Amino acid sequence: DETGKFLVLALYDYQEKSPREVTAKKGDILTLLNSTNKDWWKVEVNGRQGFVPAAYVKFL
């Protein structure tokens, strides 16, 4: 159920650099879980949760 969740689009490829991050490919649609940090947003992609740089994604 996606009610109340926001989707964001990956603008660039991002390769995770730590276990707390997730890899995303340009064009991926990610479920935004938390955007309270202006630099790192928590997302879910391909069943995995983790952080990506906020500058790499935008709201749909």
Rank of each mutant, 00 (worst) to 15 (best):
D1E: 13
D1L: 13
T3G: 13
G4W: 12
K5N: 10
F6D: 08
F6L: 13
F6S: 11
F6A: 10
L7W: 12
L7C: 15
L7D: 02
V8H: 04
V8N: 01
V8T: 02
L9Q: 10
L9S: 02
L9N: 00
A10N: 02
L11N: 02
L11D: 02
L11Y: 05
D13M: 08
D13F: 10
Y14F: 07
Q15C: 13
Q15H: 13
E16M: 12
E16P: 15
K17W: 04
K17Y: 04
K17S: 10
K17L: 08
P19Y: 10
P19T: 09
P19S: 12
P19F: 10
P19E: 11
P19V: 10
P19I: 10
P19W: 14
P19D: 11
R20E: 12
R20H: 13
R20Y: 14
E21H: 06
V22Y: 01
V22G: 03
T23E: 03
T23Y: 03
A24K: 03
K26G: 04
K26Y: 06
K26S: 08
G27F: 06
G27E: 04
D28M: 10
I29R: 03
T31L: 15
L32A: 02
L33H: 02
L33I: 14
N34E: 14
T36S: 13
T36Y: 10
N37Q: 08
N37D: 15
K38I: 08
K38S: 12
D39R: 11
W40E: 01
W40L: 01
W40N: 00
K42M: 15
K42Y: 15
E44R: 04
E44H: 03
V45R: 05
V45G: 03
V45H: 09
V45N: 08
N46V: 05
N46H: 09
G47L: 06
G47D: 04
R48V: 09
Q49K: 09
Q49D: 05
G50F: 08
G50S: 01
G50H: 04
G50N: 01
G50I: 07
F51K: 00
A54I: 08
A54L: 05
A54P: 04
A54W: 08
Y56G: 07
K58M: 14
K58W: 09
K58T: 13
F59A: 11
L60I: 13
